[in-house]
Design a protein around this nucleic acid. Sequence first.
DNA 1: CGAATAGTTGAACTGTCTCAACACGCGTGG
DNA 2: CCACGCGTGTTGAGACAGTTCAACTATTCG
Lengths: 252, 252
Amino acid sequence: MRLILDKSESCFAMAEASAHPSHTLQSGCADCAIRRNAVCAHCDADELAQLEEMKFYRSYPAGQTIVYAGDALPFLASVVRGIAMLSHTMQDGRRQTVGLLQAGDFLGRPGRLRARYDVVAASDVILCCFRRQPFEQLIARTPHLGARLLDMAMDELDAARDWMLVLGRKTAREKIASLLVILARRAGTPHDIDLVLTREAIADHLGLTLETVSRQFSALRHDGVIILHGARHVTVPDRARLIAESGDGDNA
Amino acid sequence: MRLILDKSESCFAMAEASAHPSHTLQSGCADCAIRRNAVCAHCDADELAQLEEMKFYRSYPAGQTIVYAGDALPFLASVVRGIAMLSHTMQDGRRQTVGLLQAGDFLGRPGRLRARYDVVAASDVILCCFRRQPFEQLIARTPHLGARLLDMAMDELDAARDWMLVLGRKTAREKIASLLVILARRAGTPHDIDLVLTREAIADHLGLTLETVSRQFSALRHDGVIILHGARHVTVPDRARLIAESGDGDNA
DNA sequence: CGAATAGTTGAACTGTCTCAACACGCGTGG
DNA sequence: CCACGCGTGTTGAGACAGTTCAACTATTCG
């Protein structure tokens, strides 16, 4: 099992990262960039004030494990910036990433204290964390917060089920194309994708080996479906072509 | 694409099945066998009375499609008996089953009128259906119902993510063993499994071909991990052995 | 500049798929 | 009753997508 090493500045404790709130983020919930996608999207001023009371920021450098499966996750959180990966690891080291959390996505499950999956920062990650107890109490007395969580959970469920088709039935080339389509959609930049993920992380998400991932990137580049600038920046000349390569002809 | 034929008695309309409530089920919510697992688990007598008002039963013979992806699903429902499969189908016919709904499981998403997946009755299925509008209104004014739905959705999400490991990283043999472990757990009979699913349905759920499924059943039988009585009834002499074969050493 | 991490490419190997033949169980109709 | 057809399941042989092992290149960072 590989050792995960910090690659950036100060902190190098394993699960407890630096707790200093990130510079630009001091401003508060009212003008938070991710709010429209996050749990707190529909909260009114009063509710936001309550959230301010119970929240704190944490940041994790790329590569760091935020929490290991089975360990206590002492907070619930929204991803403010970066990508966090949820993954299963089998005893023999086989690993499957089961979710990519991006800006606005919710981490943790109310009522469950321990993490069910490893959570790893794929890039530098900033979390907006809520202390468990007050947050769960707020949910209990604020029905629309529960409704928002339900909606987000069901979106995640749909995404997970869509991904099952990718894992179970698509070829390596289709898998890569599918991932690119999804990342482009989430990023909102249809023709320019900043991968962030390493070849290995992509492989773990797609149920492939990193060598196969690399070969398929080369093949897609060779066929003119994508243009690579370095290993992690992709340009998509023809979005429809990429979608066709992903196997689902109708994927707005 | 294969034609799906009714194999049982009266009804043979495609999506609109017989609407006569099933004989034994007339009795009402109070002594409903699946209630402790269903959405309505924590409802009080008054709420159950409201549910009675908006509910009706439907039954579907094995093999029948309950609703096609993209079509309107005019109700939300609990599975009362049987197994319903949620599945994706690609244009070229590749299919992936993304969920097995069993007794107590919830079908449909509040607020979404159209089915996102094909829903097919794997066995004879009985649904307890709720009319959309009144049910969604009940959720809106009954917070604990929403909480129950959230809890069920998150359980489904965990199950879907667990299944992603099966699809992405496990061998054919491990996949079969994993399915048997899960079915045994759900059925509550650790040593006796009634498969219900055909080899093809199993293949679609595991991301394999039906031939590979058949071969792996034969291999597991040959190695003494399972005993087959006919094609769809399995005896498990040693539960721990089966779990070991499934790849996850610790799977209570 | 040198070491370490990340990515690419090649060649042989292998698990699963594909195509094909055959066996079994069951209901229908001669 | 048996013959037949049909859906379902099993088994075999060859093909192939993706893995494995290995060498090499590119990039980043001290």
